[in-house]
Design a binder for these strands. Structure first.
Length: 742
DNA sequence: GTAGGGTTAG
């Protein structure tokens, strides 16, 4: 890289020794003192943008102030520094000044240091040198801040040389700015050398170095320095607290906060932001509530940063209601506010609310960023909102094409896969130049859930060949791929190499996959052996998959035992009764079916109603079992009649054995349709012929709907992609991709 | 001559 500062060399003058000592000058107020209260100058502080600034500038010209450098420097200062300013306008005024004084030069550099392009501060600094203006002790803090912001260590080092040449390293402000510059450039040793070499050791320079160590995870070094300073102020404490919080040492952060209060140091806004972050991660709602009172008592109730941190804390502590109340009360919501609230909804599985908030965010003209999408994409994935997901993908491609955020692409892969578009997921994965373990994991799980076990296993080999070491998440994908495809041998093999080769101790969900695999293959004895070998107790999911396998294999005896175990864990789970009654029905044991139905009714339990959703033209439509609430309900039911006629013509005989499973449908009678069938009917009328129909269901698809969907795909010439509770089914030309093994 | 350094969530 060409050195920016190779020329010109700094003209070093020694005029200071010959200048007249200041205190011998006659003490008369300089003319600027009278200007400070000039009406044109007070007008400046009311400016709120370029329009009002131009009006103020016109006022300057009218009153003749434009010939006064002090007045112009104040105008430039406002344009360059104020959030309501306009740096390009500051430059126009600057260029109109004949010989700007050093203060004005410094102000422009400061403006650049605050701008989105701090690198331009360095070019402007060179222009300053070329004009023969000597930089002073005010120039370097601004310039070094720009180098810190970029960060630009090479430029920073050259600036350091200039500082030494001018002998300005003895200035406390320049000194601290140098430390901070090296810290931000990641050169902690250089920062330390600057610190050690100088006798200047005030609390600010100490704290700059403490913050440097703390923010980069060197808490022990930070702690040592912290113990060394005799005077610690609130910023020194804050540096330690935020350092602990950023290193995921939340307990230590809160302990430090308590120590700070004991030391009678009054916390401030920054303290509380870090403290709330620690509370959020620890779920410490009590301390969080205390901080909330502190915020309100100290008049920070409308401080956006603090309110954002509070919302995040309440959402992470699972109190979405309080979070939402605080959010709704904000008048000027910023991007982080929106992101925190959407993230909170996603985190607590309130996916519809997350998408609704995202739409509101767009309506209020707030730009989304990467974090927004990382929070919205899981909601799209869960709800099957493919159109919105595609829109986000296009937005990223158009506006964030140079992002290095691999988790954004990994999130897109997950979204496409969960919305049923496995091809798009695969394309995106193949196009990723830098892949992380997470992206491999996402793609392997995607293939697994779509039943493409061979591809998932092949991808796993490729991943290992490319030098990635699989983790426990990789193996959840691999084992579930085997389980969905019934690959018992491969499942055993991978389970063993996970433990022996990669030294990953199996977790509950790994055992879950294996037990599911074995029991669905009818190997109940092997499944039992594995359950006895486990270090932990089986959870509801494991008993549940066993019960499901009992249904497939008609194993009534085992089912009764398993259901008993499951009800001990989840006595309120009506799904257990439904599945058991289904198993009895399959075995023709109608007395037992009736007994369970009565028991269910006596207990007043209702099975979780089946619910399917389908996205048409960017809108997600939801249907419950037997739903007639949709505005187009009449047309949907006409289509359902048409479907039934066609199915009958094709010789289909409804399989009623599972109808009893659905207590809801018994009440309404024969004309009660399962939610997936209603959604398919709506898809047939709502989308143009030949379009793929994508359905998301909250429960497993029932046997009758499964065989009907196969026929519908053939009769209506539609590919139907359905995601149920555990996997994908691709219905095409009368066949399902699961090959009826699910 | 007016200005300047260290801490802040998702």
């Amino acid at each position: 890289m060409a050195t920016v500062f190779s020329s010109p060399s700094i003209p070093i003058t020694s005029s200071s020794s010959s200048s007249f000592p200041l205190h011998f000058l006659p003490s008369s107020d300089p003319p600027y003192k009278y200007l400070q209260n000039h009406p044109s100058l007070s007008l400046l502080s009311t400016c709120r943008g370029i329009q009002t600034i131009k009006q103020a500038h016109a006022h300057f010209i009218k009153t003749g102030l434009h010939n006064n450098q002090f007045a112009l420097s104040k105008l430039i200062e406002f344009c360059a520094i104020s959030p309501f300013g306009d740096l390009s306008y500051a430059l126009i005024i600057f260029n109109s000044i004949h010989e700007p004084n050093p203060i004005i030069w410094n102000t422009i550099i400061r403006g650049y240091s605050l701008s989105p392009t701090p690198i331009l501060a360095t070019s402007f600094y060179i222009r300053m040198l070329l004009s023969g203006v000597e930089p002073n002790s005010y120039t370097f803090p601004f310039l070094l801040k720009s180098c810190a912001q970029i960060p630009a260590p090479d430029e920073g080092k050259q600036v350091h040389v200039h500082v030494l040449k001018l002998g300005l390293d003895s200035d406390a402000f320049v000194h601290t700015s140098l430390i901070n510059m090296y810290v931000r450039c990641g050169e902690l040793d250089a920062a330390r050398r600057v610190f050690d070499k100088s006798p200047l050791r005030d609390v600010v320079s100490f704290t700059a170095l403490i913050a440097g160590y703390a923010s980069r995870g060197y808490l022990n070094d930070a702690r040592k320095l912290f113990d060394e300073i005799s005077v610690r102020d609130v910023v020194s404490w804050n540096a330690m607290i935020s350092g602990y919080a950023q290193s995921d040492q939340y307990k230590e952060a809160l302990e430090f906060f308590e120590e700070m209060l004991n030391a009678k140091v009054e916390p401030n806004e920054s303290t509380m932001v870090s403290v709330l972050s620690a509370c959020a991660h620890l779920g410490s709602i009590e301390i969080g509530n205390w901080v909330r009172s502190w915020i309100e008592d100290n008049g920070f109730g409308s401080n956006i940063r603090l309110v954002n941190a509070l919302i995040d804390m309440y959402a992470k502590c699972r109190d979405l209601e309080t979070a939402r109340t605080l959010f709704d009360a904000i008048l000027q919501k910023d991007q982080i506010s929106w992101n925190v609230m959407i993230g909170g909804c996603t985190h607590l599985s309130h996916y519809k609310e997350a998408l609704a908030l995202f739409r509101q965010m767009q309506l209020s003209n707030q730009e989304p960023n990467e974090v927004t999408f990382l929070n919205v994409l899981p909601a799209c994935a869960y709800l099957g909102a493919l159109d919105l997901g595609k829109w986000i993908h296009a937005y990223i491609a158009k506006n964030m094409s140079n992002t290095t955020n691999t988790s954004l692409y990994t999130s897109l892969i997950g979204m496409y896969a969960k919305c049923g578009s496995i091809q798009s997921a695969q394309q995106l994965f193949d196009a990723m130049e830098v892949k992380t373990l997470a992206s491999w994991n996402a793609m392997i799980s995607a293939l697994a859930s779509h039943g493409n076990a061979d591809k998932a296993l092949a991808l796993f080999s490729k991943m290992v060949d490319e030098g990635f070491e699989p983790d426990d998440i990789t193996y959840v994908g691999i084992l579930s791929a085997c389980s969905h495809a019934g690959l018992v041998e491969a499942g055993h093999q991978h389970f063993d190499s996970m433990i022996q080769v990669y030294k990953i101790s199996p977790k509950l969900n790994h055992y879950g996959c294996m037990i599911d695999l074995l029991s669905r293959a009818g190997l109940f004895d092997e499944a039992k052996d594995l359950m006895e070998k486990m270090e932990m107790k089986p959870d509801g999911a494991i008993w549940g998959s066993l019960l499901g396998a009992c249904r497939v294999h008609g194993n009534v005896e085992l089912a009764e035992f398993v259901a008993g175990q499951l009800l001990e864990l989840e006595p309120e789970n009506p799904g257990v009764y439904a599945l058991l009654s289904n198993i009895y029905a399959g075995a023709g044991r109608w007395d037992d079916v009736a007994r369970i139905r009565t028991r269910l009714n006596d207990m007043g339990m209702k099975k979780l109603p089946g619910c399917s959703s389908i996205e048409v033209d960017g809108v997600v439509h939801e249907f419950l079992v037997g739903d007639k609430a949709h505005p187009q309900s009449n047309r949907i039911y006409e289509m359902l009649d048409e479907i039934d006629n066609q199915l009958e013509l094709a010789g289909h005989e409804p399989d009623t054995s599972e109808v009893l499973y659905d207590m809801e449908s018994m009440k309404v009678g024969a004309l009660c349709y399962h939610s997936e069938k209603i959604a398919i009917a709506f898809g047939l009328i709502g989308t143009s012929p030949g379009t793929t129909i994508r359905i998301v269901k909250n429960l497993r698809v029932c046997g009758n709907c499964h065989s009907e969907a196969k026929l519908i795909s053939k009769i209506f010439n539609r590919e139907i992609i359905a995601r149920d509770r555990s996997r994908f089914h691709h219905f095409k030309d009368g066949v399902c991709s699961c090959m009826d093994y699910w």
